[in-house]
């Protein structure tokens, strides 16, 4: 079994004719992902990157079989694009779009929950199962197949850390961005559950950042469930001042809440190894593995 995406994934690209949609359709196909159709309202009958374009998801499904969606449509239309994918039974739905109003995300996540659909994002680089397939905008070549599951709130930082792991000979089972927005579909706890039940994952890396409580919640979960797989983490934003949004809508320290130091402390309390700088992560994972084998 592969998590979220793999060889079995047959994806529709919503917003396929836009710059990003079209460019990344090409890269996803080159990586080996099956992209079976595209959707852009008003462009039905066209073709983009050799993929047939339909006006609606439903129209595409009359002609082809699909089981996943990746969304590139502009923020004002993203909520409905997500609902359209959910209505059609596509699962997972990966939302690359950033700057979606929080209220729209809130309603969309409630809709997804009601229909049992998994949303990755919004404002995510997507999901990759190295060596199999990717639904996302990440550069494929920094990843390598292996046993470490990676979940992150950031895009480029994930690529940075994946490249350290790859260079150190540590491959990855699945890497995904939960998204840089205040409200996202999957959170760290959901992902920890998935990695726990995934046979191809033997250790987990969490890449957090300032703002919110996703890291603290993950730490609570690790403690409460006596999480069986080793977890290492990095938290970005120690140098960030309070009250300022650091690029991501969700990356903001409010009052005394959401600081990197508090998150790192909480992780350490529950036995997660925390890297001071991202390049330490491979070493921490190797130490942890050695410690586990000794036990």
């Amino acid at each position: 079994m592969t998590l979220l995406v793999g060889k079995q994934t047959r994806a529709i690209v919503q917003g396929i004719t836009g710059n990003q949609g079209s460019f990344h359709t090409r890269l996803m196909r080159e990586y080996g992902t099956q992209i079976v159709a595209g959707v852009t309202p008003g462009k039905g009958g066209a073709s983009a990157q050799g993929v047939a374009v339909y006006d609606t998801v439903a129209a595409a499904l009359e002609r082809i079989d699909a089981n996943a969606s990746i969304i590139f449509v502009p923020a004002p239309f993203a909520k409905e694009a997500g609902m359209e994918a959910i209505d059609a039974g596509l699962n997972p739905v990966v939302i690359i779009t950033e700057m979606i109003p929080a209220r729209d995300s809130m309603v969309l996540m409630a809709y997804a929950k009601e229909h049992g659909a998994t949303i990755v994002g919004p404002n995510t680089p997507g999901v990759i199962t190295p060596g199999e397939a990717k639904l996302g905008i990440m550069p494929g070549d920094v990843f390598s197949p292996g046993g470490v599951g990676v979940a992150s709130r950031s895009g480029t930082l994930t690529y940075e850390i994946a490249s350290y792991l790859t260079r150190a000979g540590i491959g990855q089972s699945t890497c995904l961005g939960i998204g840089g927005d205040p409200i996202t579909g999957l959170n760290f706890v959901d992902v920890l559950k998935m990695f726990r039940d995934d046979k191809s994952t033997d250790a987990v890396v969490l890449i957090g950042e300032i703002g919110g409580s996703a890291e603290e919640d993950a730490a609570d979960f690790i403690e409460d469930t006596k999480y069986a797989k080793p977890v290492a983490a990095y938290v970005a934003g120690r140098a960030a001042p309070p009250g300022k949004r650091m690029g991501h809508a969700g990356a903001i320290i409010t009052g005394t809440e959401g600081t990197a130091d508090a998150k790192m402390k909480r992780f350490r309390e529950v036995g997660v190894r925390v890297a001071e700088v991202p390049s330490e992560l491979p070493r921490l994972l190797q130490q942890q593995k050695a410690a586990t084998i000794q036990q």
Binding site: G180, M246, G247, A251, V277
Partner: peptide
């Protein structure tokens, strides 16, 4: 490039 990378 990228909020997380710049923070790091």
């Amino acid at each position: 490039n990228g909020a997380g990378l710049v923070m790091a």
